[in-house]
Design a protein around this nucleic acid. Sequence first.
DNA 1: CAGTAATGTTGTCAGTGTAAACATTTAGGG
DNA 2: CCCTAAATGTTTACACTGACAACATTACTG
Lengths: 208, 208
Amino acid sequence: MPQSTKESPYHHGNLRQSLIDAALELIAEKQDAKTLSLREVARRVGVSHAAPYRHFADKEALLAAVAEEGFHLLLDYLHRAMVHIDEPARRLQASGVGYVRFAIAHPSHYRVMFSTLQVDYLNYPGLNEAGAKAFAVMVDEIMAGQAAGQMKTGDPQKLAWVSWSLVHGLSMLLIEHQLPLTDEQDIEALAEFATQSSMEGLRLGDGP
Amino acid sequence: MPQSTKESPYHHGNLRQSLIDAALELIAEKQDAKTLSLREVARRVGVSHAAPYRHFADKEALLAAVAEEGFHLLLDYLHRAMVHIDEPARRLQASGVGYVRFAIAHPSHYRVMFSTLQVDYLNYPGLNEAGAKAFAVMVDEIMAGQAAGQMKTGDPQKLAWVSWSLVHGLSMLLIEHQLPLTDEQDIEALAEFATQSSMEGLRLGDGP
DNA sequence: CAGTAATGTTGTCAGTGTAAACATTTAGGG
DNA sequence: CCCTAAATGTTTACACTGACAACATTACTG
């Protein structure tokens, strides 16, 4: 693969990924995913305004690719957060912290992941699968927690929705600057506290 | 105020609110706030495409008005959910259920409230204030709960963020059809369960 | 080495947000 | 009551966008 080093070769060589990267850059600069223009992305990459259509059916498809990349990254964060932890309940909590950590580390990805979505999800099998995999992490830990007698019984999916809702809501609020927190330490601490609380709520206890 | 009943009077009479209503209609039809066009709103109302600019500085301002209306509605739901309940912890939980109930009853409002937001919030004092008022409901109940010795000590805002995150996340997931629930009963039950769990997590207990 | 598939470009079109100039109606003070 | 100013709507115009079609260049495969 003779990567041309000439000034501006007719073929870009890696346009698909470059477009994804440029989109993320622009979203980060404007702190806004909804005003992103495909033509601007093309300009940023230094390519004609129609070139992106050779790699993406339409603008939405580009955003779907960004979202999918985001889910792969998220999965990574979840796994890294849980490694070296054994107790299922604590693993679940750690994954929650990892989730929030991902969101604040990759806000542009996160914005696209959860504002593009709507119906589309199903139109992009890769995206759909990546999302499902991330969600499955939580479900798995909950099932393990139940098996170990650490967590409330009941539909594991339902319990997972509750956990997911918490970290998703927290991430959204943080990313959209709804919470006046900027220091990373404070954010981590809040995430720790929130997931800890949620955990206690889902724990098997003497209940009401 | 001689409301003209002629075919199409030059002056609409109530254009501002009609635009808000039409915007909500269109968002509901497309299940999507981001593809809304100002010109389409104008067409729906039967007015020229520049008429909206007599009432809103730009498209964003119209959406801000929709969001503000949404927050007033939300406040209503919160209050109605708590009335007739005395115990602060249970009031907080009920408000959470009310929150979710609002979101699924007024998804178009909700979509605008939490996708327009970004920086803008501060640019629209009315919106900002309405949002703060809704959030304050949760903070107040938490403070009451702490005073009554029912809830964990600590910054009430921080506890409120946790509660808010949960119901916000749950609402988002429900509205964007990320959770395969459609029956209103099931949704209510999930909201009950989630807020109940969260409540137990925040409750004063023998915790670790 | 030929010719086809892949990739990028130019030109075009309808639709959008917004501003400016113009038109109509309403309201209030003489 | 009239007459003018403010409020409200309309028309026209412009730059920008997403998307498509026709064309140009390059890469790859038999």
